[in-house]
């Protein structure tokens, strides 16, 4: 059921939600950008609607709630392995359509793909999603081409309409709180983007053969393998394991996992010194093909959701969408073929 609410009404809803949920939303963190006197838009717990940044795309993705950048798995004492506690509270995540689409990608890796990930699942099972409508595409967005500009599978939606807010609710348990705090009922269709400035076209006939193409060579020197594109990507899921012992007492320690990047040195290192994909261009190829080719080959749909954050963040102005659009050239160059 859809509702029109005042700001106070929305805040009353948030307040009631806060009794059972931590509410995560994109917020503007003043002075937290890398350059001085610039802001960073990141996910953080909120209590009022005024804290939510509606106007800009978040710099870092919501996925940090589901797969924290650094997550403790176990604590070790001398002879015991103790599982780290999960979050105490359920979570609500406010996010845009493209990002809600990326939840499906995270689920595919962490819940499906043969094994269920215990740590992901215990958070994921207790998360509700509130869709933030998009009136216009941001710079570098290409959600329409990736077909992620609309989504129906939200629990609720929230959008500014002039001085008021519109919410659509699809989660039965929340109906009464919205009913109580809404001004009036109405049909609410969350805004969605129908046109973007950036377009991508993923060619037919892609295969690993394109790794031989010359299109990757320019990235050998342009890319600085910092991994920002991975860390801001809402669909990147890779991690590395780390064991530590606490320095003040070598007898206890923990095992954790931290986000990993296929662009950063060390990603493929094997015992004894072997490593694969040493060139940045080949790392780029690995990342790009994962997003728009091989993930789909395994799971049936593209990994990339067209949010454009990798383009937004690259300090070397390497455009992922631009690279996708070069794939056609690469296919022709190496002689495209359709795989069985």
């Amino acid at each position: 059921m859809g509702y029109l609410l005042t700001k106070e009404g929305v805040n009353a809803v948030l307040k009631e939600w806060a009794e059972s949920y931590l509410i995560y939303a994109p917020v503007r963190m003043s002075g937290k950008g890398a350059f001085s006197e610039t802001d960073s838009i990141r996910y953080a717990p909120i209590t009022t609607v005024e804290e939510i940044e509606f106007e800009k795309k978040s710099d870092f993705p919501f996925k940090e709630v589901l797969i924290p950048l650094s997550e403790t798995l176990f604590f070790f004492t001398e002879d015991q392995v103790t599982e780290a506690d999960g979050p105490k509270k359920n979570a609500i995540i406010l996010l845009r359509s493209c990002d809600l689409h990326s939840v499906k990608r995270l689920d595919e890796i962490y819940i499906k793909n043969e094994y269920e990930d215990y740590y992901y699942k215990r958070i994921r099972d207790n998360v509700k999603f509130v869709l933030m409508g998009c009136k216009n595409a941001f710079e570098n967005c290409f959600c329409v081409d990736m077909q992620t500009n609309r989504i129906e599978t939200y629990d609720a939606s929230l959008e500014k309409k002039g001085d008021f807010y519109e919410m659509d609710n699809r989660f039965a348990d929340w109906e009464t709180v919205l009913e109580r705090n809404g001004m009036s009922r109405r049909v609410v269709v969350p805004s969605y983007v129908t046109e973007t400035n950036v377009h991508v076209s993923i060619p037919q006939g892609l295969s690993l053969d394109v790794s031989r193409s010359k299109i990757w060579d320019e990235y050998d020197s342009r890319c600085i393998n910092c991994g920002r594109c991975n860390f801001v990507c809402p669909t990147c899921t890779c991690f590395s394991m780390q064991d530590i012992f606490y320095t003040d007492n070598g007898k206890i320690g923990e095992r954790r996992r931290v986000a990993a990047s296929c662009m950063v040195d060390g990603y493929t290192d094997v015992a004894g010194g072997g490593a694969y994909r040493q060139k940045n261009g080949q790392r780029m190829r690995f990342r790009v093909l994962h997003k728009v080719y091989d993930f789909k080959k395994r799971f049936g749909f593209h990994m990339c959701t067209g949010c454009g954050r990798c383009d937004d963040v690259c300090p070397e102005y390497i455009s992922f969408s631009d690279c996708i659009n070069k794939l056609g050239i690469a296919v022709k160059e190496v002689g495209g073929h359709n795989e069985e």
Partner: peptide, 24 residues
């Protein structure tokens, strides 16, 4: 194949080649 297999569960991504997880 010998690859970096951090999780062995098809999650960590390090051993993936194309659409294949070496660990799975």
């Amino acid at each position: 194949y010998e690859r970096k297999m951090c999780c062995g569960l098809g999650k960590c991504g390090h051993c993936k080649i194309d659409d294949t997880y070496i660990c799975l």
